[in-house]
Design a protein around this nucleic acid. Sequence first.
DNA 1: TAGTGGTCTAGACCACGTG
DNA 2: ACGTGGTCTAGACCACTAG
Lengths: 238, 238
Amino acid sequence: MTNKYQIIFNSIVDQIKSGEIPPNSLLPSENELKEQYDTSRETIRKALNLLAQNGYIQKVRGKGSIVIDINKFDFPVSGLVSFKELADKMEKKPRTIVNELSLIFKPDAYIRQQLQLSGKDQVWKIVRTREIGGKKIILDKDYLAAKYVPSITEEICANSIYAYLENELNLKISFAKKEIVVEEPTAEDRSFLDLEGFHNIVVIKNYVYLEDASLFQYTESRHRPDKFRFVDFARRTQ
Amino acid sequence: MTNKYQIIFNSIVDQIKSGEIPPNSLLPSENELKEQYDTSRETIRKALNLLAQNGYIQKVRGKGSIVIDINKFDFPVSGLVSFKELADKMEKKPRTIVNELSLIFKPDAYIRQQLQLSGKDQVWKIVRTREIGGKKIILDKDYLAAKYVPSITEEICANSIYAYLENELNLKISFAKKEIVVEEPTAEDRSFLDLEGFHNIVVIKNYVYLEDASLFQYTESRHRPDKFRFVDFARRTQ
DNA sequence: TAGTGGTCTAGACCACGTG
DNA sequence: ACGTGGTCTAGACCACTAG
């Protein structure tokens, strides 16, 4: 990306992170930034809107843009941190065990419904266990519409499915719908996970869409409750 | 709001919801919309960006704006649905019991830390139970920095704190940080809630900020796990 | 090649907060 | 009154998709 507003955004993010622009202070005004970066005000505003959306600043009309204290938001990250997309969630776990990788010719009604498929469409089913500190903590069940993914190997599943989809197959993920509920453990949970007496499972259901708004993946990520954590930053819709 | 782009946004939302513009079809192009609404292209683009951010459309360069099938996203709402801000979460429950309303002169270290307060600042503490279908399902513990809220009554707590803060005190909430974890029930949970044998509590911690980026409220919303549900729509950060 | 959305500009006027 | 951010305009050029 060589977009001007992206460059300005990154430049200001760096200044905030380094402490060059301290928390609770005001950013230079839009007109000053316009001069500094030798651009138009609308371009500056695009960069500032990006900063606001990402929780770096708070804009106040008539006053200026306040730098938010990011240290307040620096939680110790354990189980799960949201929004960085699935890449983070799926890939950065210490150890991954592939329990199942199969191409389903006749997906059952539940999967067809979740993936909005007709009976003729085939589906990849991938079941993986995530091990943290020697304990099996997370059970991931992935269902991928096969019309978008002609082939996939166990090695890819053990490493990074998303790197494969994006870099090899050139599929672009554009948005995802997430649903979090708490359920009783199933027999499958009990057999694949080290439950150690926990009576509940946190289930994150993910519906993943491609650039053309087509649904291509449904994922259930089943977490032991003690290792689960979800963080969310919500801005008031003006 | 009489903003042009808001009006255009609402107009298109209505057309999508009514089915006038069907799912998976293309919106008129930005140039067509520009003529239709007699405005400039940038204003149309603001409206379309709002639509994209709210999950109504997916924009594809060189192609157009695809209407996303909102029926796919129309989950039956039970316990909790995110993002509509706290108003929804806090206020629309059938029955609210106010268990405690007090002004704390010397907040303890935990609360001071959560609200980023010095020892001299006073804090309102509000504890409420939410009853759904005759069962006590949710325990809400609110801590409000008293410097922003000079007074509050039990009646206000039983109805809508947010309506009071926004309409009477003219406080504007601008953003919130949410954290979701699962914990063991405390003695307090057991005494205030109808746990019925559930072994876990879903805890939603909320840090609420005002327009000038000052932290003014910390809330713990403690849910019985069977009645908890969280929905999230995440767009890939481009 | 024509049409789409993405970026960028230079200017205008408005609503709001502070002095 | 002044400076701030919020909205809006009319135009330009670019990157991409499609026929």
